[in-house]
């Protein structure tokens, strides 16, 4: 498990590392690393590989909202079945069960605020067991998955020094 963990820590920060590079960094055999990664993909320990994109730089003005959802839990299944009904929508990026004043936190992407308003009023709040929603639009991203959006990543060091 130790080796798996170390591989995952490396991939978590940079999904594009080659098996060869990982093998070198961990003093392991490349084939073994490849095999372990494939195993973890099969076991859904690794669910997939994403790219973190600053769409704003492309002039895209899509909208993301975080929606607090209050839900009446259902007998037997608790929150799971409502959560599933929500996460099946492709525009929903994340769904979390939360402690505190509301139950589900839902992250939704849309082309415009109208888009999201429509989703909330027509799809989300009309679901059985959903009591109420509070929608927060994201105005600006500063940091996501450890990446800082604005700070230029320039190397300020002298190019040659002792």
């Amino acid at each position: 498990m130790e080796l798996e963990r170390r591989i995952l820590h490396l991939l978590e920060n940079n999904a594009r590392l080659s098996c060869k590079a990982i093998a070198t960094m961990l003093d392991e055999d490349e084939a073994r690393i490849k095999n372990i990664i494939e195993q973890m993909e099969k076991q859904k320990i690794i669910l997939g590989y994403n790219t973190i994109i600053n769409w704003e730089l492309l002039g895209n003005d899509g909208v993301t909202a975080m929606i607090d959802v209050k839900v009446t839990p259902e007998r037997e299944v608790g929150f799971n079945s409502v959560a599933e009904k929500i996460y099946r929508y492709p525009e929903v990026r994340c769904v979390y069960l939360m402690s505190g004043t509301y139950d589900l936190s839902v992250v939704v992407n849309g082309e415009s605020m109208k888009d999201i308003a429509w989703f909330v009023s027509h799809k989300l709040s009309t679901l059985d067991h959903v009591q109420s929603t509070v929608t927060h639009f994201i105005l600006k991203r500063y940091k996501q998955e450890n990446f800082i959006f604005e700070e230029p990543e320039e190397d300020r060091r002298l190019v040659v020094s002792p």
Binding site: D155, R157, L158, V160
Partner: peptide, 24 residues
């Protein structure tokens, strides 16, 4: 010897430097 080399490098663009002596 480092100074001499430094003067050379700073005249150029697009250099990948493995010449530094400090953390990144």
């Amino acid at each position: 010897g480092i100074r001499k080399f430094f003067d050379l490098v700073t005249q150029m663009d697009g250099v990948i430097s493995l010449g530094v002596g400090e953390p990144d």
